[in-house]
């Protein structure tokens, strides 16, 4: 059976996902993706009922069970220093990153 995710499709996905894989990883991941897709194809045999509604969750959230909407108030975090302390690289409480490439849009 032909692989659904070809090397070309796979490389495109890797690029979109902002990943960079070595050959061993790429081979393993593409194989597993194709195996999983074979299992997923079982869904095609399911006779879907007409007008079947989909839910965002299995449990329906009714107005009674949903939390009340609250006002959109800004609540300051108690200690922003704790958050900024997580920055991999910073300068004067600003995030530092390498050059941001720019593309001219058509």
């Amino acid at each position: 059976m032909k692989d659904e995710i070809t090397i070309e499709v796979f490389n495109h996905l890797v690029s979109l996902a902002a990943l960079e894989l070595d050959e061993t990883q790429a081979q393993y991941l593409r194989h597993e993706l194709n195996q999983q897709l074979k299992a997923i194809h079982e869904l095609e045999a399911v006779p879907l009922e007409q007008g079947l509604k989909i839910n965002a969750h299995g449990v329906a959230f009714t107005p009674q069970t949903s939390p009340q909407l609250r006002t959109d108030d800004w609540i300051p975090f108690e200690d922003t220093t704790d958050i900024l302390a997580q920055l991999p690289q910073s300068e004067d409480r600003y995030v530092v990153v390498p050059d941001i490439p720019h593309e001219k849009l058509d």
């Binding site: 796979f10 996905l13 890797v14 996902a17 902002a18 990943l19 960079e20 894989l21 990883q25 393993y28 991941l29 597993e32 993706l33 999983q36 990153v97 390498p98 050059d99 941001i100 490439p101």
Partner: peptide, 26 residues
């Protein structure tokens, strides 16, 4: 690193194991 995109790719490649990568791609 030459730019931000390269930082994303290398960081995510080195930081994620195989299972997160697989889930992202699928």
């Amino acid at each position: 690193l030459s730019d931000l995109n390269e930082m994303y790719r290398k960081t995510r490649n080195e930081g994620f194991g195989l299972q997160p990568k697989l889930r992202i791609l699928m």
